[in-house]
Design a protein around this nucleic acid. Sequence first.
DNA 1: ACGGTTTTGACAACCGTTTTCATTTTGTCC
DNA 2: GGACAAAATGAAAACGGTTGTCAAAACCGT
Lengths: 131, 131
Amino acid sequence: MTRASTTSRRNAVREALSECEGFRSAQDIYAALRADGSKIGLTTVYRALQALCDAGEVDVLRTDEGEAVYRACRTEEHHHHLVCRDCGRTIEVAGPAVERWAAAIADEHGFSEITHTVEIFGRCADCTGAE
Amino acid sequence: MTRASTTSRRNAVREALSECEGFRSAQDIYAALRADGSKIGLTTVYRALQALCDAGEVDVLRTDEGEAVYRACRTEEHHHHLVCRDCGRTIEVAGPAVERWAAAIADEHGFSEITHTVEIFGRCADCTGAE
DNA sequence: ACGGTTTTGACAACCGTTTTCATTTTGTCC
DNA sequence: GGACAAAATGAAAACGGTTGTCAAAACCGT
């Protein structure tokens, strides 16, 4: 897991990403940086996100519409997310029980080289209250 | 969960889907039907899949590349998938423990109206052996 | 058979993402 | 600091999956 190179553009993307609570699309980041006066290009945002992603500094997942959304993760360790579908607020959760369950299921059916995706979506307390 | 209307084209898509073991993209289905001599259009395949999907007759999920893939599910009940990343063979698995875990995590953080995605990917015994 | 609704398919439009390529910036060795 | 090579950048074009448009065809109840 080599660290992504740190150019000023990449740092800008890193920073924009770490300033928000939830998952954001490449275009969101681009719009935010532009709004801040940056002259960054959309292509560069995509490339920076990909680099950060490869380096393991950010998590990616796909929305139901197939759009890729990114988030700076606090921990380097394997974890999953509890995401508010209204405000996007995201909580990182560890799930050793789920890891074991997935491994057991796979083993039972003779599958190897397991990976898995586990994400939980809901409405957070604030959004439920503010309705 | 109203049943999707049954036109001949929709049935063709239904059938094509139920004839294969794993998740298939809209374009795969289209190609298969065309190869069988059907004059169906790509648009219609997309529409049929969406209808079947709305009716709960098929499951959809997104590949890492953002492509939507579909599968006729055997059971109407809530379940997850164990998917071979080589041949696409898919096994439906129930995970009451995971359901409980997800509910508990959500509750603990004050989240409500929970949904979740849980998919396991790996290499099945056949593909491991045939390598 | 008739009129109205639904479905269909060719094609164009869309949208997020990637590629291309010429220009700019960065790093390094002198 | 200056020169040069390598890496990064941005505008625009290309791409690929998916959705919208619209006229023609199939289907339905009478």
